[in-house]
Structure formats: C-alpha cells, structure tokens
C-alpha cells in the first residue's frame, strides 16, 4: 500500500451518477478534519476583536471551513485570544476538557503565548501552555487577521501530516 497518501484522490472510473475513487483513510480523515475546524472562541482582551474581525465578512474565515461555535461540545479548536489571568485559567481548562477529541488549540497574541507585556504581573498566567497544550502560537500584539489566518493554515498543515497510526490524539481504529 502506501499509494495516494499525499495527493488528492481522483476518479479512476466514471459511473452513471458518480465515479470510483481510491484514497487512504489517513488522507480522507485529515482532509475532513482540516477543512471543518469549528472553533470555540475564547476572547479575553484586545486580541478578541482581531479574532472577531477575522470571522467577519472582510476576512471571512468561513471559506476555510472555520465557523465559530458558542459551546465546547461542538468545537474542534479553541482560539485563546488575549491575556489569561489566574482567575480565568481554571475555566479555560474546564472548557478545554469539555471539548471532544480531536481538539486543537491556537494561542493568539503575545499575552496568551508568554504573558507578553504583563509577564511580571502578579495576576497573569505566563503563557496558555501552562494550562492546556498549544498547537500553534500566533505572534503579534495583537496579531492582524492575516496572522491568525496564517496560523489556521499552519494548523491545517499540521493536521494533514497526522496519521491514525500511533496517534495519541484520536485512536479511532483501536
């Protein structure tokens, strides 16, 4: 085997009303996961407005299949946008735990990456990765919508390299 792993499937034989394609399970699963990332929006500070702007019609995240959800039960991805304080950190952990597998995290902006300008503060968590695992860090203070879109594309690349073998995230065939 090992054929057709990296390229899109094409129609081998045409039939009335459709055709026959061959592909790997990896490709099909990763393709569907990468193109329907539904994010739980977790806006905490000024980065939230860049995230909102990215979702709105000018930058239109819908064309990447990214469609904001209000509840963790329907979300595959969480945008942590803004300053994470120690008071809200347990709530972020709870929301992350409520999301179904597979789940991904994009940390948006300096504050959620490292604490940013509030690094010496008594009340700010020095990076979201102290609380939940992060897949993509988007730099900027705040990042422009283009930066966030680049982060989403990087996450899609990462998902497309995933395999169902030896994957501790989602072991659907075990």
């Amino acid at each position: 085997m090992g054929i057709l792993l990296d390229e899109a499937p094409y129609i081998l034989e045409k039939m009335p009303g459709g055709g026959i394609i061959i592909t790997s399970a990896d490709w099909l699963i990763n393709w569907s996961r990468a193109n329907s990332l539904w994010p739980l929006t977790f806006g905490l500070a000024c980065c939230a407005f860049e995230m909102i702007s990215t979702n709105m019609s000018k930058y239109d995240l819908d064309r990447f299949g990214v469609f904001p959800r209000p509840t963790p039960r329907q979300a595959d991805l969480i945008f942590v946008a803004g300053t994470l304080t120690k008071k809200i950190a347990p709530k972020l952990k709870k929301l992350y735990d409520q999301m179904g597998e597979p789940k991904y995290v994009i940390s948006m902006g300096s504050c959620s990456n490292t604490g940013g300008p509030f690094y010496d503060s008594y009340s700010v968590v020095k990076g979201v990765d102290k609380v939940i695992p992060v897949d993509v860090y988007v730099a900027g203070c705040p990042p422009r919508p283009e930066n966030l879109i680049e982060g989403i594309l990087k996450l899609q690349e990462k998902i497309k390299k995933d395999t169902i073998k030896n994957n501790d995230r989602a072991q659907i065939f075990k």
Partner: peptide, 15 residues
C-alpha cells in the same frame, strides 16, 4: 494585597 509596596509574590503553578 498585591498593590502594597512590600507585597512579595509567591510563584504558583502558573509561573
């Protein structure tokens, strides 16, 4: 009380 001048912050699990 963190805005007191003599407040010393103890590192916790978030530092």
């Amino acid at each position: 009380y963190p805005l007191r001048k003599d407040y010393s912050r103890k590192p916790d699990q978030y530092d």
